Simulated scan of single mutants.
Amino acid sequence: MQILMADGLAMLFVTHDLAVVRSIADRVVVLQQGELVESATTETMFSAPKTLYCRELLSHALNIQPAAAS
C-alpha cells in the first residue's frame, strides 16, 4: 500500500462501517442527506469530531467512542 500511495493513488470508499473507515482512511467526509457535515483527518474525526451530528454518529458505533466535546 505504501508504494501505491507514493505514486499518488487516491480511492473513494463509501461505507457506513465506521470500523472500516477508521482502519483504512486517511481522511473522512461525513454527509447527512447528501450535504457535507464535516471533513477531517481520520484521527481528528474519531478523537474530536466538531459537529453534534458526527459526535452522535460515532457514539452509536460499536467500540468507537469520540472524545467529549469541549
Rank of each mutant, 00 (worst) to 15 (best):
V21Q: 02
M5T: 02
T42Q: 03
D7K: 09
T41W: 10
V30K: 07
M1T: 10
L9Y: 06
L58Q: 00
N63V: 08
K50R: 11
L18H: 01
R22N: 14
P66Q: 09
E38W: 08
L58R: 02
L31Q: 14
F13W: 14
P49L: 08
S59F: 02
H16Q: 13
A19G: 11
H16Y: 03
R27S: 10
A40V: 02
R27H: 11
S47W: 01
Q33M: 13
T41A: 14
Q33F: 14
D26P: 02
A69S: 15
L52W: 06
A40S: 10
R27Y: 06
M1L: 10
V37I: 14
G8D: 01
L62K: 08
D17W: 04
A68Q: 12
A68V: 09
E56W: 08
A25F: 11
A40F: 04
T44R: 07
V30E: 04
I24C: 12
L52F: 12
G34I: 09
L12G: 12
Q32M: 07
C54G: 11
L57G: 00
H60K: 06
A68P: 07
A61G: 03
Y53E: 03
E56N: 13
Q65W: 11
Q65H: 11
M1E: 11
D7H: 09
I3T: 11
A68E: 12
S59A: 15
D17L: 05
L4F: 03
R22P: 06
D7W: 01
E35P: 00
F46C: 00
M1R: 03
L36C: 09
A6C: 07
T15L: 10
E38Q: 07
R27D: 07
R27T: 05
F13D: 03
E43V: 09
Q32R: 15
G34W: 14
V14G: 08
L58E: 00
D17A: 09
T42P: 09
G34T: 05
L57V: 00
A6I: 04
M1I: 10
L57H: 00
E38P: 14
M11V: 13
D7F: 06
M45A: 04
S70A: 15
H60Y: 10
D17M: 05
A6P: 01
F46H: 02
V28K: 00
L52V: 10
A40E: 07
M1N: 08
Q65M: 11
E43C: 06
M45E: 02
Y53G: 01
E35A: 14
T15E: 04
G34Q: 05
V30M: 12
L12H: 12
C54A: 15
Q32V: 06
T15H: 06
S39G: 07
S39L: 14
L31M: 15
G34R: 09
E43D: 15
A40D: 13
V30N: 02
V29N: 04
V20R: 09
Q65Y: 13
L52M: 10
L52Y: 08
T42L: 13
M11T: 13
L62H: 08
A6Q: 09
L58I: 07
F46A: 02
R27L: 04
